[in-house]
Nucleic acid binder design. Structure first.
Lengths: 212, 212
DNA sequence: CCTATAATCTAACAATCATTTGATTTTTGG
DNA sequence: CCAAAAATCAAATGATTGTTAGATTATAGG
Protein backbone atom coordinates (compact mmCIF):
# COMPACT_ATOMS: atom_id res chain seq x y z
CA UNK A 1 0.00 0.00 0.00
CA UNK A 2 2.80 2.36 0.83
CA UNK A 3 2.24 5.54 2.74
CA UNK A 4 2.13 8.86 1.08
CA UNK A 5 5.78 9.88 0.95
CA UNK A 6 5.54 13.63 1.29
CA UNK A 7 3.68 15.54 4.01
CA UNK A 8 5.30 13.65 6.83
CA UNK A 9 4.84 14.88 10.33
CA UNK A 10 1.80 17.06 10.41
CA UNK A 11 2.13 19.70 13.07
CA UNK A 12 -0.16 19.61 16.05
CA UNK A 13 -1.30 23.12 15.28
CA UNK A 14 -2.21 22.25 11.70
CA UNK A 15 -4.57 19.68 13.08
CA UNK A 16 -6.13 22.25 15.36
CA UNK A 17 -6.89 24.68 12.56
CA UNK A 18 -8.17 21.88 10.38
CA UNK A 19 -10.37 20.69 13.18
CA UNK A 20 -11.75 24.19 13.70
CA UNK A 21 -12.56 24.39 10.03
CA UNK A 22 -14.50 21.14 10.03
CA UNK A 23 -16.19 21.98 13.31
CA UNK A 24 -17.31 25.25 11.81
CA UNK A 25 -18.87 23.45 8.88
CA UNK A 26 -20.49 20.50 10.62
CA UNK A 27 -20.49 20.92 14.38
CA UNK A 28 -18.81 18.71 16.93
CA UNK A 29 -21.09 15.70 16.94
CA UNK A 30 -21.40 15.58 13.17
CA UNK A 31 -17.65 15.89 12.76
CA UNK A 32 -15.87 12.55 12.59
CA UNK A 33 -12.27 11.93 13.40
CA UNK A 34 -11.97 10.81 9.80
CA UNK A 35 -13.21 14.21 8.60
CA UNK A 36 -10.54 16.00 10.58
CA UNK A 37 -7.85 13.56 9.56
CA UNK A 38 -8.73 13.86 5.88
CA UNK A 39 -8.31 17.61 6.11
CA UNK A 40 -4.62 17.12 6.93
CA UNK A 41 -4.04 13.97 4.87
CA UNK A 42 -3.97 11.56 7.78
CA UNK A 43 -6.05 8.63 8.89
CA UNK A 44 -8.30 8.85 11.90
CA UNK A 45 -6.05 6.53 13.88
CA UNK A 46 -3.10 8.88 13.45
CA UNK A 47 -4.86 11.68 15.24
CA UNK A 48 -4.57 9.70 18.45
CA UNK A 49 -0.84 10.17 18.32
CA UNK A 50 -1.38 13.90 18.75
CA UNK A 51 -4.47 14.08 20.93
CA UNK A 52 -5.84 11.83 23.61
CA UNK A 53 -9.27 11.64 22.05
CA UNK A 54 -11.95 13.63 20.29
CA UNK A 55 -13.00 15.49 23.42
CA UNK A 56 -9.52 16.71 24.14
CA UNK A 57 -9.14 17.77 20.53
CA UNK A 58 -12.21 19.98 20.82
CA UNK A 59 -11.01 21.34 24.13
CA UNK A 60 -7.67 22.22 22.55
CA UNK A 61 -9.30 24.13 19.73
CA UNK A 62 -11.33 26.18 22.16
CA UNK A 63 -8.41 26.80 24.49
CA UNK A 64 -6.20 28.08 21.71
CA UNK A 65 -8.93 30.27 20.29
CA UNK A 66 -9.72 31.83 23.63
CA UNK A 67 -6.09 32.40 24.53
CA UNK A 68 -5.35 34.26 21.32
CA UNK A 69 -8.28 36.57 21.88
CA UNK A 70 -7.55 37.20 25.54
CA UNK A 71 -3.92 38.01 24.84
CA UNK A 72 -4.86 40.94 22.66
CA UNK A 73 -7.50 42.16 25.07
CA UNK A 74 -5.11 42.16 27.99
CA UNK A 75 -2.66 44.34 26.15
CA UNK A 76 -5.39 46.87 25.53
CA UNK A 77 -6.61 46.63 29.08
CA UNK A 78 -3.14 47.41 30.39
CA UNK A 79 -2.89 50.62 28.35
CA UNK A 80 -3.78 54.02 29.78
CA UNK A 81 -6.47 55.00 27.34
CA UNK A 82 -9.77 56.46 28.44
CA UNK A 83 -12.50 53.94 29.06
CA UNK A 84 -14.20 54.85 25.80
CA UNK A 85 -11.00 54.46 23.82
CA UNK A 86 -10.20 51.26 25.62
CA UNK A 87 -13.60 49.71 25.03
CA UNK A 88 -13.47 50.76 21.39
CA UNK A 89 -10.12 49.07 20.97
CA UNK A 90 -11.37 45.94 22.70
CA UNK A 91 -14.45 45.71 20.53
CA UNK A 92 -12.40 46.23 17.42
CA UNK A 93 -9.89 43.60 18.51
CA UNK A 94 -12.55 41.03 19.27
CA UNK A 95 -14.48 41.55 16.06
CA UNK A 96 -11.32 41.46 13.97
CA UNK A 97 -10.39 38.22 15.71
CA UNK A 98 -13.71 36.70 14.83
CA UNK A 99 -13.71 37.84 11.22
CA UNK A 100 -10.09 36.84 10.85
CA UNK A 101 -10.75 33.27 11.89
CA UNK A 102 -14.41 32.56 11.58
CA UNK A 103 -13.90 28.86 12.20
CA UNK A 104 -12.41 29.33 15.64
CA UNK A 105 -14.75 32.21 16.41
CA UNK A 106 -17.79 30.10 15.62
CA UNK A 107 -16.44 27.15 17.55
CA UNK A 108 -16.27 29.36 20.63
CA UNK A 109 -19.97 29.98 20.22
CA UNK A 110 -21.34 26.72 18.98
CA UNK A 111 -19.22 24.00 20.47
CA UNK A 112 -19.28 24.94 24.10
CA UNK A 113 -22.38 22.90 24.65
CA UNK A 114 -20.57 19.91 23.19
CA UNK A 115 -17.90 20.47 25.81
CA UNK A 116 -20.55 20.37 28.51
CA UNK A 117 -22.10 17.24 27.08
CA UNK A 118 -18.97 15.15 27.38
CA UNK A 119 -19.94 12.24 29.54
CA UNK A 120 -17.77 12.26 32.57
CA UNK A 121 -19.66 10.24 35.09
CA UNK A 122 -18.57 6.69 34.35
CA UNK A 123 -16.62 4.22 36.38
CA UNK A 124 -14.54 3.35 33.34
CA UNK A 125 -10.85 2.72 33.46
CA UNK A 126 -9.40 6.04 32.36
CA UNK A 127 -10.07 7.88 35.59
CA UNK A 128 -7.08 10.12 35.00
CA UNK A 129 -8.31 11.15 31.54
CA UNK A 130 -11.59 12.15 33.03
CA UNK A 131 -10.01 14.05 35.87
CA UNK A 132 -7.72 15.99 33.56
CA UNK A 133 -10.53 16.74 31.17
CA UNK A 134 -12.80 18.09 33.86
CA UNK A 135 -10.02 20.21 35.31
CA UNK A 136 -9.12 21.73 31.97
CA UNK A 137 -12.73 22.23 31.04
CA UNK A 138 -13.37 24.08 34.27
CA UNK A 139 -10.35 26.24 33.64
CA UNK A 140 -11.62 26.98 30.17
CA UNK A 141 -14.95 28.16 31.55
CA UNK A 142 -13.19 30.24 34.16
CA UNK A 143 -11.13 31.89 31.46
CA UNK A 144 -14.22 32.51 29.45
CA UNK A 145 -15.75 34.33 32.39
CA UNK A 146 -12.53 36.29 32.75
CA UNK A 147 -12.79 37.23 29.08
CA UNK A 148 -16.30 38.55 29.56
CA UNK A 149 -15.17 40.33 32.69
CA UNK A 150 -12.60 42.32 30.74
CA UNK A 151 -15.40 43.90 28.75
CA UNK A 152 -17.78 44.26 31.65
CA UNK A 153 -15.25 45.93 33.90
CA UNK A 154 -14.39 48.42 31.20
CA UNK A 155 -18.05 49.27 30.80
CA UNK A 156 -18.40 49.69 34.56
CA UNK A 157 -15.29 51.81 34.80
CA UNK A 158 -16.58 54.03 32.02
CA UNK A 159 -19.86 54.54 33.83
CA UNK A 160 -18.12 55.43 37.08
CA UNK A 161 -15.81 57.80 35.24
CA UNK A 162 -18.85 59.50 33.75
CA UNK A 163 -17.77 58.62 30.22
CA UNK A 164 -20.73 56.31 29.64
CA UNK A 165 -24.36 56.74 30.53
CA UNK A 166 -25.73 54.57 33.31
CA UNK A 167 -26.70 51.18 31.94
CA UNK A 168 -26.96 47.65 33.26
CA UNK A 169 -23.35 46.78 32.57
CA UNK A 170 -23.81 43.02 32.84
CA UNK A 171 -26.65 42.87 30.33
CA UNK A 172 -25.16 45.37 27.92
CA UNK A 173 -21.91 43.43 27.96
CA UNK A 174 -23.71 40.22 27.16
CA UNK A 175 -25.57 41.97 24.36
CA UNK A 176 -22.25 43.23 23.01
CA UNK A 177 -20.61 39.82 23.06
CA UNK A 178 -23.68 38.26 21.51
CA UNK A 179 -23.47 40.71 18.65
CA UNK A 180 -19.77 39.95 18.18
CA UNK A 181 -20.25 36.22 18.34
CA UNK A 182 -22.96 36.38 15.77
CA UNK A 183 -20.49 37.98 13.37
CA UNK A 184 -18.82 34.59 13.17
CA UNK A 185 -22.07 33.17 11.83
CA UNK A 186 -22.79 35.58 9.00
CA UNK A 187 -19.43 37.11 8.07
CA UNK A 188 -17.98 35.95 4.78
CA UNK A 189 -14.58 36.97 3.51
CA UNK A 190 -14.94 39.00 0.34
CA UNK A 191 -18.38 40.39 1.14
CA UNK A 192 -19.45 44.02 1.06
CA UNK A 193 -17.41 44.91 4.13
CA UNK A 194 -14.01 43.81 5.36
CA UNK A 195 -13.57 42.51 8.87
CA UNK A 196 -12.07 45.84 9.85
CA UNK A 197 -15.01 47.72 8.43
CA UNK A 198 -17.45 45.53 10.35
CA UNK A 199 -15.41 46.15 13.47
CA UNK A 200 -15.66 49.91 12.91
CA UNK A 201 -19.43 49.70 12.70
CA UNK A 202 -19.52 47.71 15.93
CA UNK A 203 -17.33 50.20 17.77
CA UNK A 204 -19.48 53.07 16.60
CA UNK A 205 -22.66 51.25 17.51
CA UNK A 206 -21.64 50.30 21.02
CA UNK A 207 -20.14 53.62 21.93
CA UNK A 208 -23.36 55.25 20.80
CA UNK A 209 -25.32 52.76 22.89
CA UNK A 210 -23.27 53.89 25.87
CA UNK A 211 -24.01 57.53 25.14
CA UNK A 212 -20.54 58.52 23.90
CA UNK B 1 -45.03 -6.40 29.22
CA UNK B 2 -48.14 -4.30 28.95
CA UNK B 3 -48.10 -0.78 27.72
CA UNK B 4 -48.51 2.09 30.02
CA UNK B 5 -52.27 2.48 30.38
CA UNK B 6 -52.61 6.22 30.80
CA UNK B 7 -51.03 8.88 28.62
CA UNK B 8 -52.42 7.50 25.42
CA UNK B 9 -52.10 9.56 22.33
CA UNK B 10 -49.36 12.07 22.83
CA UNK B 11 -50.05 15.19 20.87
CA UNK B 12 -47.82 16.11 17.99
CA UNK B 13 -47.18 19.46 19.59
CA UNK B 14 -46.09 17.90 22.86
CA UNK B 15 -43.42 16.08 20.96
CA UNK B 16 -42.26 19.31 19.37
CA UNK B 17 -41.78 21.08 22.69
CA UNK B 18 -40.11 18.05 24.15
CA UNK B 19 -37.80 17.87 21.17
CA UNK B 20 -36.95 21.53 21.53
CA UNK B 21 -36.09 20.97 25.15
CA UNK B 22 -33.73 18.10 24.41
CA UNK B 23 -32.23 19.92 21.43
CA UNK B 24 -31.54 22.86 23.68
CA UNK B 25 -29.72 20.65 26.12
CA UNK B 26 -27.74 18.45 23.76
CA UNK B 27 -27.87 19.76 20.22
CA UNK B 28 -29.27 18.00 17.20
CA UNK B 29 -26.60 15.40 16.52
CA UNK B 30 -26.22 14.45 20.16
CA UNK B 31 -29.96 14.15 20.58
CA UNK B 32 -31.26 10.65 19.93
CA UNK B 33 -34.77 9.75 18.95
CA UNK B 34 -34.82 7.78 22.17
CA UNK B 35 -34.05 10.95 24.15
CA UNK B 36 -36.96 12.77 22.61
CA UNK B 37 -39.28 9.80 22.98
CA UNK B 38 -38.39 9.36 26.64
CA UNK B 39 -39.32 12.98 27.29
CA UNK B 40 -42.92 12.19 26.32
CA UNK B 41 -43.02 8.60 27.60
CA UNK B 42 -42.83 6.96 24.20
CA UNK B 43 -40.40 4.66 22.47
CA UNK B 44 -38.27 5.89 19.62
CA UNK B 45 -40.21 3.84 17.11
CA UNK B 46 -43.44 5.57 18.03
CA UNK B 47 -42.11 8.93 16.97
CA UNK B 48 -42.18 7.74 13.40
CA UNK B 49 -45.94 7.66 13.58
CA UNK B 50 -45.90 11.43 14.05
CA UNK B 51 -42.91 12.53 12.02
CA UNK B 52 -41.30 11.19 8.89
CA UNK B 53 -37.85 11.10 10.42
CA UNK B 54 -35.44 12.95 12.63
CA UNK B 55 -34.68 15.63 10.06
CA UNK B 56 -38.32 16.51 9.59
CA UNK B 57 -38.77 16.63 13.32
CA UNK B 58 -36.04 19.23 13.62
CA UNK B 59 -37.47 21.16 10.70
CA UNK B 60 -40.86 21.19 12.41
CA UNK B 61 -39.44 22.58 15.62
CA UNK B 62 -37.74 25.39 13.77
CA UNK B 63 -40.77 26.17 11.61
CA UNK B 64 -43.07 26.45 14.60
CA UNK B 65 -40.62 28.58 16.53
CA UNK B 66 -40.08 30.98 13.67
CA UNK B 67 -43.78 31.27 12.88
CA UNK B 68 -44.68 32.20 16.41
CA UNK B 69 -42.07 34.95 16.46
CA UNK B 70 -42.94 36.32 13.05
CA UNK B 71 -46.65 36.47 13.87
CA UNK B 72 -46.06 38.88 16.69
CA UNK B 73 -43.63 40.99 14.69
CA UNK B 74 -46.06 41.35 11.81
CA UNK B 75 -48.75 42.70 14.08
CA UNK B 76 -46.34 45.34 15.32
CA UNK B 77 -45.16 46.11 11.83
CA UNK B 78 -48.72 46.74 10.71
CA UNK B 79 -49.37 49.30 13.45
CA UNK B 80 -48.96 53.02 12.89
CA UNK B 81 -46.37 53.74 15.55
CA UNK B 82 -43.33 55.85 14.86
CA UNK B 83 -40.28 53.93 13.70
CA UNK B 84 -38.68 54.24 17.10
CA UNK B 85 -41.76 52.97 18.87
CA UNK B 86 -42.16 50.22 16.36
CA UNK B 87 -38.58 49.05 16.62
CA UNK B 88 -38.79 49.17 20.38
CA UNK B 89 -41.86 47.00 20.36
CA UNK B 90 -40.24 44.56 17.94
CA UNK B 91 -37.13 44.24 20.05
CA UNK B 92 -39.19 43.71 23.16
CA UNK B 93 -41.34 41.12 21.44
CA UNK B 94 -38.37 39.18 20.12
CA UNK B 95 -36.48 39.17 23.40
CA UNK B 96 -39.56 38.18 25.36
CA UNK B 97 -40.10 35.35 22.89
CA UNK B 98 -36.59 34.12 23.43
CA UNK B 99 -36.67 34.36 27.21
CA UNK B 100 -40.14 32.83 27.27
CA UNK B 101 -39.08 29.73 25.42
CA UNK B 102 -35.34 29.46 25.61
CA UNK B 103 -35.38 25.98 24.12
CA UNK B 104 -36.99 27.03 20.87
CA UNK B 105 -35.05 30.29 20.81
CA UNK B 106 -31.75 28.50 21.14
CA UNK B 107 -32.75 25.92 18.56
CA UNK B 108 -33.27 28.73 16.07
CA UNK B 109 -29.70 29.76 16.66
CA UNK B 110 -27.85 26.52 17.10
CA UNK B 111 -29.62 23.95 15.01
CA UNK B 112 -29.73 25.71 11.70
CA UNK B 113 -26.39 24.28 10.74
CA UNK B 114 -27.77 20.83 11.43
CA UNK B 115 -30.52 21.61 8.97
CA UNK B 116 -27.93 22.51 6.37
CA UNK B 117 -25.96 19.36 7.04
CA UNK B 118 -28.79 17.02 6.21
CA UNK B 119 -27.49 14.83 3.45
CA UNK B 120 -29.69 15.28 0.48
CA UNK B 121 -27.64 14.21 -2.46
CA UNK B 122 -28.19 10.46 -2.55
CA UNK B 123 -29.86 8.31 -5.15
CA UNK B 124 -31.75 6.48 -2.46
CA UNK B 125 -35.35 5.40 -2.77
CA UNK B 126 -37.16 8.15 -0.91
CA UNK B 127 -36.81 10.76 -3.61
CA UNK B 128 -40.06 12.39 -2.54
CA UNK B 129 -38.92 12.75 1.07
CA UNK B 130 -35.81 14.49 -0.09
CA UNK B 131 -37.69 16.78 -2.42
CA UNK B 132 -40.18 17.79 0.25
CA UNK B 133 -37.44 18.32 2.78
CA UNK B 134 -35.41 20.55 0.53
CA UNK B 135 -38.47 22.57 -0.42
CA UNK B 136 -39.51 23.13 3.17
CA UNK B 137 -35.98 23.87 4.24
CA UNK B 138 -35.63 26.51 1.55
CA UNK B 139 -38.89 28.04 2.62
CA UNK B 140 -37.67 28.11 6.20
CA UNK B 141 -34.55 30.01 5.19
CA UNK B 142 -36.60 32.39 3.12
CA UNK B 143 -38.81 33.07 6.10
CA UNK B 144 -35.80 33.59 8.24
CA UNK B 145 -34.55 36.25 5.85
CA UNK B 146 -38.00 37.80 5.92
CA UNK B 147 -37.81 37.87 9.71
CA UNK B 148 -34.50 39.72 9.62
CA UNK B 149 -35.91 42.03 6.97
CA UNK B 150 -38.69 43.14 9.30
CA UNK B 151 -36.09 44.56 11.66
CA UNK B 152 -33.81 45.92 8.95
CA UNK B 153 -36.59 47.71 7.13
CA UNK B 154 -37.72 49.36 10.32
CA UNK B 155 -34.20 50.58 10.98
CA UNK B 156 -33.97 51.92 7.43
CA UNK B 157 -37.34 53.62 7.66
CA UNK B 158 -36.30 55.25 10.90
CA UNK B 159 -33.15 56.60 9.32
CA UNK B 160 -35.06 57.99 6.36
CA UNK B 161 -37.61 59.54 8.66
CA UNK B 162 -34.81 61.23 10.55
CA UNK B 163 -35.70 59.41 13.76
CA UNK B 164 -32.45 57.42 13.84
CA UNK B 165 -28.93 58.54 13.13
CA UNK B 166 -27.33 57.28 9.95
CA UNK B 167 -25.89 53.83 10.47
CA UNK B 168 -25.18 50.77 8.36
CA UNK B 169 -28.65 49.29 8.76
CA UNK B 170 -27.69 45.80 7.61
CA UNK B 171 -24.84 45.44 10.05
CA UNK B 172 -26.59 47.07 12.97
CA UNK B 173 -29.56 44.78 12.41
CA UNK B 174 -27.34 41.73 12.45
CA UNK B 175 -25.70 43.01 15.63
CA UNK B 176 -29.10 43.46 17.17
CA UNK B 177 -30.30 39.98 16.28
CA UNK B 178 -27.02 38.51 17.47
CA UNK B 179 -27.52 40.17 20.84
CA UNK B 180 -31.07 38.84 21.07
CA UNK B 181 -30.11 35.34 20.00
CA UNK B 182 -27.40 35.25 22.60
CA UNK B 183 -30.01 35.89 25.27
CA UNK B 184 -31.21 32.35 24.63
CA UNK B 185 -27.80 31.12 25.66
CA UNK B 186 -27.37 32.85 28.98
CA UNK B 187 -30.87 33.66 30.19
CA UNK B 188 -32.10 31.58 33.10
CA UNK B 189 -35.59 31.79 34.52
CA UNK B 190 -35.44 33.04 38.08
CA UNK B 191 -32.24 35.03 37.68
CA UNK B 192 -31.66 38.64 38.66
CA UNK B 193 -33.83 39.96 35.84
CA UNK B 194 -37.08 38.73 34.33
CA UNK B 195 -37.39 38.25 30.59
CA UNK B 196 -39.34 41.50 30.42
CA UNK B 197 -36.64 43.36 32.28
CA UNK B 198 -33.97 42.05 29.95
CA UNK B 199 -36.13 43.11 27.02
CA UNK B 200 -36.36 46.62 28.47
CA UNK B 201 -32.59 46.88 28.69
CA UNK B 202 -32.29 45.74 25.08
CA UNK B 203 -34.82 48.27 23.85
CA UNK B 204 -33.07 51.05 25.71
CA UNK B 205 -29.68 49.94 24.42
CA UNK B 206 -30.61 49.73 20.77
CA UNK B 207 -32.57 52.94 20.67
CA UNK B 208 -29.57 54.66 22.21
CA UNK B 209 -27.32 53.03 19.62
CA UNK B 210 -29.57 54.54 16.96
CA UNK B 211 -29.31 57.97 18.53
CA UNK B 212 -32.83 58.18 19.92
C1' DC C 1 -70.78 -4.46 20.41
C1' DC C 2 -67.78 -4.49 16.26
C1' DT C 3 -64.60 -3.06 13.32
C1' DA C 4 -61.48 0.07 11.06
C1' DT C 5 -58.00 3.15 12.11
C1' DA C 6 -54.73 5.37 15.08
C1' DA C 7 -51.15 4.90 18.38
C1' DT C 8 -47.98 2.36 20.43
C1' DC C 9 -44.74 -1.46 21.30
C1' DT C 10 -40.84 -5.07 20.80
C1' DA C 11 -37.26 -6.77 18.10
C1' DA C 12 -33.99 -6.63 14.62
C1' DC C 13 -30.93 -4.38 11.04
C1' DA C 14 -27.57 -1.95 8.81
C1' DA C 15 -24.62 1.75 9.14
C1' DT C 16 -21.50 4.67 11.42
C1' DC C 17 -17.87 5.89 14.43
C1' DA C 18 -14.54 6.51 18.24
C1' DT C 19 -11.02 3.97 19.75
C1' DT C 20 -7.42 0.13 20.25
C1' DT C 21 -3.99 -3.01 18.63
C1' DG C 22 -0.12 -4.16 16.46
C1' DA C 23 2.54 -3.42 12.51
C1' DT C 24 5.33 -0.33 9.34
C1' DT C 25 7.77 3.64 7.98
C1' DT C 26 10.30 7.83 8.84
C1' DT C 27 13.34 10.70 11.31
C1' DT C 28 17.11 11.84 14.21
C1' DG C 29 20.86 11.71 17.63
C1' DG C 30 25.06 9.53 18.17
C1' DC D 1 25.12 4.12 9.16
C1' DC D 2 22.30 2.38 13.23
C1' DA D 3 19.13 2.10 16.58
C1' DA D 4 15.70 4.29 19.25
C1' DA D 5 11.86 7.23 19.05
C1' DA D 6 8.22 9.47 16.48
C1' DA D 7 4.63 9.36 13.10
C1' DT D 8 1.76 6.95 10.50
C1' DC D 9 -1.20 3.13 8.79
C1' DA D 10 -4.54 -0.96 8.19
C1' DA D 11 -7.72 -3.65 10.39
C1' DA D 12 -10.71 -5.04 13.95
C1' DT D 13 -13.87 -4.03 17.85
C1' DG D 14 -17.63 -2.65 20.51
C1' DA D 15 -21.08 0.46 21.11
C1' DT D 16 -24.63 3.50 19.50
C1' DT D 17 -28.31 4.88 16.65
C1' DG D 18 -31.79 5.97 13.00
C1' DT D 19 -35.03 3.37 10.93
C1' DT D 20 -38.10 -0.51 9.54
C1' DA D 21 -41.11 -4.62 10.16
C1' DG D 22 -44.51 -6.82 12.23
C1' DA D 23 -47.29 -7.36 16.15
C1' DT D 24 -50.47 -5.45 19.86
C1' DT D 25 -53.58 -2.28 22.07
C1' DA D 26 -56.75 1.65 22.20
C1' DT D 27 -60.37 4.51 20.34
C1' DA D 28 -64.26 6.18 17.81
C1' DG D 29 -67.97 5.77 14.41
C1' DG D 30 -71.75 3.05 13.07
Amino acid sequence: MARKPADQSVAREDILWAAAEVLHRKGYEATTMKDIAAQVNLTAASLYHHFKNKDFLLLNVLEVGLDLTIDKLERIDASDLTCAEKLGAMIRSHVVSVTGNVAVGAAMVFEIRALLNVSVGGRNGDESFTREFVARRNQFFARRDYFEGLFRDTVRAGIEAGEFREVDAAIVTKAMLGAHNWVGVWFKEGGRLSGEAVADVMVDTWLAALGV
